[in-house]
């Protein structure tokens, strides 16, 4: 409980944080929800009920965007996170050179989406890009246009982030470092070795860490924007479009209410995912 003399300083101390938070999170959130049910162009504002959502659900591009967003999230969860775990488990053994590998593999995580987009627009280019040159070395010579062929475009986009393993890697490494050594020693006494050791000791104990990585990955994939916007604008034939880009298009054409409805949908999906992932991985509870 607070001594009365402390009330004022505590209030003063909380004020800036509360003010910033209210202005840039609470109010925008309220605005977003309200305008989702309206027609709003910046000039005029008119309530239209569920019209925006009806229109959105009837638009096949929305379903394509939702489908792609699910696809990108799946790549994050089922490719990136497992690979990151694998690397993390390997490096946690502190094998020779682990610091160098950790640094190299982590670096892409600090590179911006805009820079990555430029890198991959060169890398995938069918005339002078590196990818086709590499494939030619293995006997697959072609001039395939990875980004602008509907059959490969979304894979090409996913390829830009599927191998950014750094985050999962270090979270896993940190979690392993906190596992008491005695656990392993006991298991070794019982005859467990090598990968079996990890299968039965490490992985179960990583539940919390993996759940966190899945969650963070999902959150950033739901909002995927930079790379797609800069590389393909969502094309060809909307095969790479994401929900965030779909919303941005609505914003560009001046339909702010519609854009807000899409924004609300993104937040709603985010919320559902957080809850279900937390449930699934029982996040917050420590491993037994």
């Amino acid at each position: 409980m607070i001594r009365s003399g402390m009330r004022l300083p505590i209030a003063l101390s909380l004020a800036p944080g509360v003010a910033l938070f209210a202005t840039f999170f609470v109010v925008p959130f309220a605005l977003l929800v309200t305008s989702s049910f309206s027609e709003w162009s910046g000039l005029e504002f008119r309530f239209t009920g569920l019209e925006n959502f009806q229109r959105m659900l009837a638009d096949f591009v929305f379903w394509r965007a939702a489908g792609n967003t699910v696809f990108y999230s799946a790549v994050g969860v089922f490719v990136q996170v497992p690979l990151g775990c694998l690397i993390g488990i390997i490096l946690a053994q502190k094998i020779r050179g682990w610091k160098v590998f950790r640094a190299i593999i982590f670096v892409p995580w600090v590179i911006s989406g805009a820079a990555f987009a430029l890198v991959f627009s060169m890398f995938y280019n069918p005339r002078f890009g590196l990818l086709n040159d590499i494939l030619a070395l293995f006997g697959f010579a072609s001039r395939h246009d990875w980004l602008f062929d509907t059959s490969t475009a979304r894979f090409a986009i996913a390829g830009t982030f599927a191998f950014v393993l750094g985050f999962t890697m270090i979270v896993v490494m940190a979690e392993i470092a906190s596992i008491p050594k005695e656990l392993y020693e006991a298991a070794e006494c019982d005859g467990a070795q090598g990968w079996r050791l990890h299968r039965y000791i490490t992985l179960p104990l990583l539940r919390n860490a993996i759940g966190t990585c899945v969650l963070i990955r999902l959150l950033s994939d739901i909002g995927l924007f930079d790379i797609v916007y800069i590389l393909t604008l969502g094309g060809p034939n909307d095969s790479t479009v994401t929900l965030a880009l779909y919303g941005y298009r609505a914003y560009l054409s001046g339909e702010w209410g519609f854009a807000s409805a899409i924004g609300s949908t993104i937040l709603l999906i985010g919320l559902v995912l957080i809850l279900s992932v937390s449930r699934l991985f029982r996040l917050g509870e420590r491993a037994q």
């Binding site: 109010v27 969650l215 949908t265």
Partner: peptide
């Protein structure tokens, strides 16, 4: 208050684009 602020961490902020611009 703590829960609200922590929850904001889990917000895909691009969803808030239009209102942020307006504010």
């Amino acid at each position: 208050l703590v829960a609200l602020i922590s929850l904001a961490l889990a917000l895909p902020v691009v969803g808030l684009a239009v209102p942020e611009f307006f504010i």
